[in-house]
Structure formats: C-alpha cells, structure tokens
C-alpha cells in the first residue's frame, strides 16, 4: 500500500508541474519571436567572448607574452571588433523591441 501511495504522490506531483505551463491562465506578455531573441543572445555571447579576449590580451601583456607594441595593435583590433558587435547588438535589440510593440 505504501508503495502505491508513493507512486500516486509522485505521479500527482509530476502531472501538476508538467501541466503548469499549459494551464497558465495569465495573459502572457507578447515577446519578440525567438529568432530575434536568439540573434540578440548570440550577439551578447559574442560580446562577452570579445571582452574576455580583451582581458586576456591585457593579461598577456602584463605577463610578458605580448610586447607593448603587439598588445597595442591587438587591443586596437579587438576593440574595433567589440564596437562592431555592440553596434550590431544595439540594432538587434532595437528590432526586438520594435517587434514587441
């Protein structure tokens, strides 16, 4: 009997949480299509990776793997790439915001 009660309890809990998104009666805020959100997310990921590259380059300079001249040219290139990503990110966010409206 205890076993069957346990199974019933687990099943009941599982059905409750699995069906929750389907039962939700709240008016969902209209969000931008996943495709647009995905573009924003991809650009955010690219931005984060670029920041990491900039930080890594600075660490490479401080630990002697890069000369000041090498670091300067690399840093300039990385920042230019980062700015490009930021502009694309701004544009993607604008498109997503416009689509929500």
């Amino acid at each position: 009997m205890a076993g069957y009660l346990l199974v019933l309890a687990v099943v009941g809990f599982a059905v409750y949480i699995v069906s929750a998104p389907l039962r939700s009666a709240r008016a969902r805020r209209r969000t931008a299509p996943d495709g647009l959100l995905e573009s924003v997310a991809e650009l955010e990921a690219a931005r984060d990776a670029k920041y990491l590259e900039i930080t890594d380059a600075e660490l490479d300079l401080r630990t002697g793997k890069l000369s000041p001249d090498d670091h300067r040219s690399l840093d300039r290139a990385l920042r230019a790439e980062a700015i490009e990503i930021l502009h694309r990110l701004d544009a993607a966010r604008a498109r997503a915001a416009a689509d929500e409206r």
Binding site: E53, K65, D70
Partner: peptide, 8 residues
C-alpha cells in the same frame, strides 16, 4: 606561454 592571434 604563447599569446592568442600571433606572437613575435
């Protein structure tokens, strides 16, 4: 001990 992109 090698940097990203290139090293002299």
């Amino acid at each position: 001990i090698i940097a990203w992109r290139r090293v002299t």
